[in-house]
Amino acid sequence: MSGILCVESVSHCYAGQTVLREVSFSVGRGEIFGLLGPSGAGKTTLVKILTGQLSQTGGTATLWGEDTRRLSAQTRREIGAMMDDLGLYDRFTAEENLSFYAALTRAQRSRGEELLCRCGLWQARKTPAARLSKGMRNRLALARALLGGPRLLFLDEPTAGLDPAAARGIWRLLEEEREKGMTILLTTHNMVEAQRLCDRVALLHEGRIVALGAPEALCRQHNRQNGLLITLKDGQRQWLENGPAAAPELCRWLERDQLAAIHSTEPTLEEVFLNLTGRRLEDEQCGAAL
């Protein structure tokens, strides 16, 4: 297995329960890799193992060939992490939060100012973190994770609980970082996020990887219907099997200018997950919200 991050048969048990079962994958340089699964699937546990916060009970995980249970100070400086609980100093302003971590990570002070601008927090730089909105707090935590100019970034549910506009702001930032060559591992249960950002995803269910691959490839692979859903201009909907036999019918509608839309019956990642596990990705979250 090659890559800057390698996970081989990682298992983890906690309080008599198996949280992760034989998880294996690798992440290459400049890749955005997504860990998808509902709450309790083991995503956060895996991120904690990969960032050296937790020692797995089985298997090996390495970053640049170094065991995550014994990461050197040098390797720690190469990684950035934004966990789901953010960990901001509430009585410190956005600017102070960043200055403090800039000093700790020996990053330049100007880097903090640059990130405040890029993350859209310049106007709010003098506001204590406790008084920032959820979206701003997420962006501040992301800015902090980017401070040291990491080569590998871990993001645990970076847009959880954010409105679509705030989430898009974070996606733009991550896309910019990807263009600069940063490797990103993110956990999410947001399918739109996974499909927009991730080069590859691993679908995690009860601590086990049930599918691994590029989002489009996974959707194609699980396209059992292999059909085309046709919408005509008069509102009628037709289903055709995707193959040469559909060509004459399609040509006829095109010639008569009747065609309004053609959709593939390819499933979404959400549907792939549902097919594989019988569970929806957001089941747990809906339950929690109720």
Binding site: Q53, R76, M83, G87
Partner: peptide
């Protein structure tokens, strides 16, 4: 409780 300690340890403290 606020997980700031975890972030510090992650930062190499």
């Amino acid at each position: 409780e606020k997980n700031t300690l975890r972030v510090l340890l992650l930062a190499g403290v």
